[in-house]
Design a protein around this nucleic acid. Structure first.
Lengths: 263, 263
DNA sequence: CAGTGGTCTAGACCACACG
DNA sequence: GTGTGGTCTAGACCACTGA
């Protein structure tokens, strides 16, 4: 059973690699079925799609991780029940802008202060850089609703070392999201964000910006954005007026498997 | 290359399956190396461990997902840099009790009210059961510190249909965690929890229980615990006094890959 | 028992990084 | 070019579920 990719290869020069073919085919398959319906057995499905079972299973796994299918050992594979979680939660990093657009909320950037300065000690710590490293700080209020009655919903501050972002990189098209800018530029390659979740009372300054009283409740998300090389690219503080955005997270039940040693 | 598992099988009757052998071996390997160090190439490593490369890669993937190694296409596999995230975040579901123990915080259960009653309309909605379904409600204050000066840190309420949990199931050993009880019983099999994240001002009753003033800030986590069959097993509300517990979440940067069709 | 997903193998080629 | 990880194949056996 010597494998000869070139002789077995079903792709023409222009067609997609097996992985994406299978991905698309499986997606189509799912769209045509009702939740709870059973999918064909893996060997059969693999044959239908013209790939090996291993390749099919790779795609199956990704679908399972996203909660689109349920696989039951010894029973079969099924279209997942109507997802208990409709929108994605916090586990996928996306900008507030993107989130708002996705959920139909209309937002625009309000008052903004953009400046290059030295990092404060706390910022330097969070960014894991030397004290007084030059950074670009972008502070702005996000508003929602029509202009006369627009309401402030969040106060956002991003702090980025100027090595990653300069004031002039924020074109006139900048509408509030530093994250989207990084994603669009594709540089540096981003890995993940560590987001701390806090509740706090608004101080005088923040209350003013958000049209609240001092002491009113805010949800505060403090995030460090990591590049693939492990460097912190962005330290952001987001303060939300309760009621406009809704955050949640899906938590896996921990496997009581063997734990890794210390590290 | 006909595969004959029985003839190739290197396991004696008592040894572990390849997956776990590899898992252990890889863990050992990592523990003996410094962050940034390169691991042997996959084919060589697979041969050393006496497994196929596919099997090794399966383990590698799981290590990578946990952030223990970094794989770079065309370059090599490396011990991950000092993990930016030390403890796990919210993405793994664990009881407050377990979390406290893990982080060295000493907690004990304070005043508790345990009763069987009918679900309120909101509870029925969250539990996805008919209105007035009988439920077990467990409300208690969690305290920290030595007895004379013990401070309340959280107010927890779990609401569980009596089909899953009865008052008599909470033995005298019950010390505050309904989740741990479910995990220990292994029934029903749990899948995940959807946890909403909110900031709110303490109302009169809660403030009293937590020794706060009305209007003080609380972090509120509202969770629905799902069994593998999709049913909601537990609806819980956790209100935290800021400063004692620290919650965070790791957010993946979204893949700009092909999105699935609507669903 | 039959049928399903779960695991594993040995070998091959592809795509990328880097000197 | 050399060496790495990334993908893929065809086939086999194992482990579980449910009739």
């Amino acid at each position: 059973m010597t494998t000869s990719r070139s002789s077995t290869d079903k792709r023409s020069a222009t067609s997609l690699p097996p992985r994406e073919q299978v991905h698309a085919a499986l997606a189509t398959l799912l769209n045509g079925r009702q939740p709870g319906e059973q999918l064909p057995p893996e060997p059969q499905l693999a044959h239908q799609l013209g790939v090996s079972r291993a390749t099919l299973r790779e795609t199956m796994r990704s679908f399972q991780e996203r909660g689109l299918i349920v696989r039951r050992h010894g029973v079969g594979t099924f279209v997942a029940p109507p997802p208990p979680v409709i929108e994605t939660g916090l586990e996928e990093l996306e900008s507030l802008d993107t989130l708002a657009r996705r959920t139909g909320l209309q937002t625009r950037m309000g008052e903004a202060v953009i400046e290059e300065r030295e990092a404060t000690p706390n910022e330097a710590f969070r960014l894991q850089v030397s004290p007084r490293t030059p950074v670009l700080a972008v502070a702005r209020v996000m508003m929602t609703g029509a202009l006369p009655g627009a309401m402030p919903v969040a106060f956002l501050v991003d702090v980025v070392p100027t090595a990653y972002l300069r004031q002039q990189d924020l074109g006139p098209g900048f509408c509030g999201s530093v994250l989207d800018l990084f994603i669009q530029r594709e540089h540096p390659p981003l890995s993940h964000s560590r987001t701390d979740i806090l509740a706090e009372a608004a101080d005088e300054a923040t209350a003013g910006k958000l049209h609240l009283q001092r002491g009113d409740v805010l949800l505060r998300l403090e995030a460090q954005l990591y590049a693939c090389d492990g460097h912190v690219v962005d330290y952001s503080i987001s303060q939300f007026v309760p009621g406009h955005f809704h955050f949640h997270v899906v938590r896996r039940v921990g496997n009581p498997k063997v734990r890794l040693p210390g590290r």
